[in-house]
Simulated assay, not measured.
Amino acid sequence: MPKDSIRKTRSDGDKTKERILKAALALFAKHGFAETENKEIAKKAKVDIASINYHFGSRKGLFEAVLIRAHQNLVSLEALEAIQRSDMTPEEKLHGVFNLITGAARRGERASLQVISRSVIAPGAALETLFKEEARPKLHVILQIVSEITGFPVGDPRLIHCIASAIAPAFLFFVFGSRFPGPFGALTKMPQSDLDDQLTVFALGGLRATAAAAAAKATDEKEKAALPAGSFKAPDTANVA
């Protein structure tokens, strides 16, 4: 087969695969994986059913590919790595992470979030694949940034607690999008730069307080360990009214 024909075949195959991915993502987001039949996906993608197994190996393979694509639509690993490799300060890097998150929310990636949310509610092997291939590398990058801010080494379990407290709230914008309930709707009308600034300020406050508390505890434990056996250290009453 001529090289031009091979390239054309591959190009057509890539386009078909992309149509299947987009169709499946939209349908899984709306109806869920279990409630969506392959024939519906094939109809929406304008392909024959056999193309699904040809390009993805199985229905499970398609679902895993959709989850990975959905995660990429929200925040890409390349964008996170670019922030981490930059010469920005750790605080500026954190601001950049929030900018990625709120930017995706403003773009309206609700279908991607819905697909991932459904898989979290009913976890299975596909979710494990998503974490291993897509989420874990991104988490590692964010751990490095938070490590630079707190001084906790990468691998310290406290970093996970920090991320859950400081960064997770930003993902509420994915859940509600422009339909934030009640007075919180004003948040979606803020300029994105102002919103990123606010999220960063509050996150840094918590991260720095956590680091300071850990340092104070470590100092206290070191002083106690240095005391002779049987001695007593009086509690600090400087701040007691």
Rank of each mutant, 00 (worst) to 15 (best):
E40S: 12
K17A: 10
S58R: 12
V66K: 01
L27A: 09
R69Q: 15
I52S: 01
D14F: 07
F63E: 12
K43P: 06
K46E: 15
K15R: 15
G57F: 06
S51M: 12
G13Q: 09
I52E: 03
I49Y: 08
L25F: 04
V66Q: 02
G32L: 01
D12S: 12
A29Y: 00
A29M: 00
A23H: 02
K46P: 04
H71D: 15
L62C: 09
R19S: 14
A23Q: 01
F28I: 04
E64Y: 02
K43H: 13
H55G: 02
L25M: 14
D48Y: 11
A29N: 00
H31K: 13
A34P: 07
A70R: 01
A24S: 11
T16S: 12
I68M: 10
I52M: 05
T36H: 03
D48S: 13
A42L: 12
I52T: 09
I68H: 02
L21M: 10
G32N: 05
D12A: 13
G57S: 05
E40Y: 05
L25P: 00
F28Y: 15
V47T: 15
A50K: 13
A34G: 08
S51N: 11
S11H: 11
K46L: 11
V66D: 00
G32E: 04
R19P: 10
A23N: 02
E35K: 11
E64M: 10
I41G: 00
E35H: 12
A65C: 10
Q72Y: 06
E37C: 07
N53L: 04
K30P: 00
K22R: 15
Q72I: 07
F56R: 05
V66G: 01
K30V: 04
H31N: 15
L21V: 08
